[in-house]
Amino acid sequence: MANIIINGKGYQVEDGITILEACNRLGIDIPTLCHDERLEPYAACRLCVVEIKGKGKLETSCSTKVRDGMEIETHSERVIRARKEILDLLFSNHPNDCLTCEKSGECKLQDYCYEYGIVEGTYIGEKKNYPLDESNPFYTFDPNKCILCGKCVRVCSELQGTNAIGLKDRGFDTKVSTPFDMGLATSKCVSCGNCVAVCPVGALMPKKRERYRAWEVRRVKTTCSYCGVGCQMYLLVKGDKVVGVEPAKSRPNNGLLCVKGRFGYNFINHPDRLKTPLIKRNGKFEEATWEEAYDLIVSKINEIKGKYGPDAFAGLTSARCTNEENYLFQKMFRALIGTNNVDHCARL
């Protein structure tokens, strides 16, 4: 354990952790744009700088480990001045369009500008002016909004292992790019959207089918309904529609999803959905009430059971339905119809 002093107060923390980790655990809020606990420290945005007694320079808390006896100031005047300067520089080279920006309301740059009172960018000069990459069917990359935190690149390589994007050129011209700047569609990108999930600003944004502001949606945590991995995710709900999906940072997926889980949700509110029971009469489906449908099924069950016995019945339960539903289904066949002819597509 290391004894350290943060903002004049003494704490005991685990050895070998970074100052940022220590502060997170102690509930001391340090701003950062490039940090993600799942990734290697990167110290690109420098927003997490803190003052350490005895050091001339401010240090990035995400990459500096605690040492016994360390005295740290996380919100001193000097630190705050430095953070303001960084935010000012970032926003000076950022489009001022929070009015309609899709990220507004969940943008880290916006959050910190509000917190540190940066009302506008005071550096007047050249601004980035790149074309948008809209080649991917599920998301857009707007390099002009990119703050070069590198999270997308690192998630793509360190976590997703796809390496579709990288940083190109230097200095003012640095840009997140695909090989030869050919666009996402022709890259190795597998459209998992894990880069979109970590972008702190509006540079990587899902293409929306329904327009909504970040503050208009509810988030409901649930389990993905595609493969057997069982990724945890949030359904974004506006009114009676699911308008988006975001990964949840918990087991087993720890904040990652694949293209189907992340973007394959439009079937939910699809117009083709069955909305009423159908009964086939003379080879044609006719809409029916639930009562009519139930009555018909029950009378057929009784009729066939009377004539042929319970083993003339078979049920295909579903690897797509919940445990509770599967339980009821097999119980219905076994206890109420009287046969063990229940199976599902485990083998397919």
Binding site: R218, V220, K221, T222, T223, S225, G228, V229, G230, Q232, L235, V237, D240, K241, V242, R251, P252, Y265, F267, I268, R273, L274, K275, T276, P277, L278, I279, K280, F285, A288, A293, L296, I297, K300, C321, T322, N323, E324, E325
Partner: peptide, 30 residues
């Protein structure tokens, strides 16, 4: 002969069990 319209996973409560035997909640969103 009869088709019954079911709710999707986004419209119901329940649990799924994943490939590592983890029983997890499904929650109703709409």
């Amino acid at each position: 002969d009869v088709v019954l319209p079911a709710a999707s996973f986004a419209e119901k409560e329940g649990t799924f069990t994943n490939t590592e035997r983890r029983v997890q909640r499904v929650r109703k969103a709409i």
